[in-house]
Design a protein around this nucleic acid. Structure first.
Lengths: 148, 148
DNA sequence: GCGCATTAGTTGCGTGTGCAACTATTTAAC
DNA sequence: GTTAAATAGTTGCACACGCAACTAATGCGC
């Protein structure tokens, strides 16, 4: 097996590690967030994205990108959260095709309640992953990225 | 904002990067694999796991772990592949609750056809990700894990 | 201005998913 | 041995997802 073949296998192995760690983190977050505040991971991700904009609004396409969801899934996700009065759709004047979304007060409150749970679970799961040889290399490196 | 708070934010940022890269890779693999060989990503992952056992069989729970799927989803995934005659269920004698699965000849053939596509797409997507500042740190590190 | 391609977002539809409840088998208790 | 607890896998069900087709608004060519 030559060097090029090795590279292929190492990439594949890295991808399996990435997928495994992703699955573990996501299901742990899903479990805790839904139990404590009734939010799924994508729902939290969307609230988090809106909140990091700090009062500013985002368009559907930006939300789709932030959540790694299709346009149709984003529409329904926003609709669900709007039905729960956590955010509101706002037509934007300059481009009447576009739709802005912004957090309501209730949405901000729920986000502030959810964030500590999210962060604690993430910390716990990463610590656990560091103990597993298969996941450790990735889990250890994750908190060392440029804070941007 | 203190050091502990920074750590929380850096972890969260790392998780967002991980999730973003995961989404990009998965959707690219999904697109190419389904177009070229009619396999979804989880289907390929399962065939790959079975193949890496090199002729040996795996139990449902092991497959569930390898694919990061629930027991019920694993049951249906295996059923789909069995219906397509890519693998076969084998009752195991010593524990009659357990079920082994093993690749059929057609399954091995399809896997060998799918693997180059999978590997090429993975290489391409990782190269693209290295160009994006948000993803680059993770994309560059991924192929540097212990080959194990 | 007028028509055509493009973009933003939404809906119909089929499908894969997790949870909870279930059956079947094994293991432990005594 | 008989009964209870635990484990392996499967099914009913509700729901979130992506794709393709759609509507509405914008921008571009001329």
């Amino acid at each position: 097996m030559g060097i090029a073949d090795d590279a292929v296998e190492i990439r594949a192995h890295g991808w399996r590690t990435l997928a495994a760690l992703h699955g573990i983190i996501e299901s742990a977050l899903e479990k805790d967030l839904s139990a404590e505040v009734g939010l799924s991971v994508v729902e939290y991700t969307l609230l988090d994205a809106l909140n990091r904009q700090d009062g500013w609004h985002m368009r559907m396409a930006q939300l789709a990108r932030a959540t790694a969801l299709s346009p149709s899934a984003t529409t329904r996700l926003v609709s669900r959260l709007e039905d729960r009065a956590l955010l509101s759709r706002v037509l934007c004047a300059d481009d009447r095709r576009g739709i802005y979304t912004e957090l309501t007060h209730a949405g901000q409150q729920l986000y502030r309640k959810a964030k500590p749970i999210h962060d604690a679970t993430l910390e716990r799961v990463l610590k656990e992953a560091e103990q597993q040889p298969e996941l450790a290399p990735l889990a250890r490196i994750l908190p060392q990225f440029p804070s941007a």
